[in-house]
Amino acid sequence: MATPPGLIVTVLYPRSSDLKFNLNYYLSHHIPLATKIWTPHGLLGVTVGETLAESTEFAYTITTQWKDLEAWEAAQRDQTGLKELMSDVPKFTNAEPIFVVAKVVSKE
């Protein structure tokens, strides 16, 4: 049985009139890079969503599932991995990602 997540981190990319987002690059390069760097710290999975309504505040929502808060914090302390990931962001978007960290309180 797979480990249930104890924490989710949602990454939001705001919609704007000048938004650039290379979804192909994001899916083929950035997500595999994040998975490679963060799985040893406790990343359990990633779900990428593209919002359907152009009237919504965010164009893309990414949900990452983590073993627990300690796993997320360990990933954030990995300065080498974090630097590599953040330096990759301008290669696929001009948006500043927003991170929302939440403890899982229910899973159906």
Rank of each mutant, 00 (worst) to 15 (best):
P4M: 02
P40H: 04
I98L: 13
T61A: 07
K107F: 10
S16L: 08
A2Q: 09
Q65F: 12
L27Y: 06
E70F: 03
P97R: 11
K107S: 13
S106I: 11
Y26Q: 07
G81V: 00
L33M: 13
D78L: 03
A34H: 06
D68S: 10
S17D: 15
A102P: 04
K107Q: 14
N24I: 14
E73G: 01
S17W: 12
T63K: 04
I98Q: 15
T63E: 03
F99Q: 06
K20M: 15
E57Y: 08
E108V: 13
K20W: 14
P97K: 13
L7G: 00
K107E: 14
I37T: 09
Y13T: 00
V104W: 04
A75C: 02
E96S: 13
F21L: 07
T51I: 05
R77Y: 04
P5S: 00
K91C: 13
A95C: 02
L43S: 00
I98H: 12
V48S: 12
M86I: 15
V9S: 03
A34G: 14
M86C: 15
L44T: 02
I31H: 09
S106C: 10
E70W: 04
A59M: 07
I62H: 07
W66P: 00
A2D: 05
E96R: 15
T51P: 05
T51W: 09
A59Y: 04
N22H: 09
L82H: 08
G42S: 07
P90L: 14
P14E: 12
V11M: 07
V100Q: 12
T3Q: 08
I62K: 03
V100M: 10
P32Y: 03
L69T: 08
R15N: 04
H30T: 00
V46N: 10
A59R: 12
Q79N: 10
L19F: 05
T80L: 13
V48M: 08
L12G: 01
G42C: 04
A71Y: 00
W38Q: 14
T10P: 00
E50G: 12
I31A: 09
I31M: 11
E73A: 06
G42K: 02
D88Q: 08
L19A: 13
V89N: 07
P5K: 01
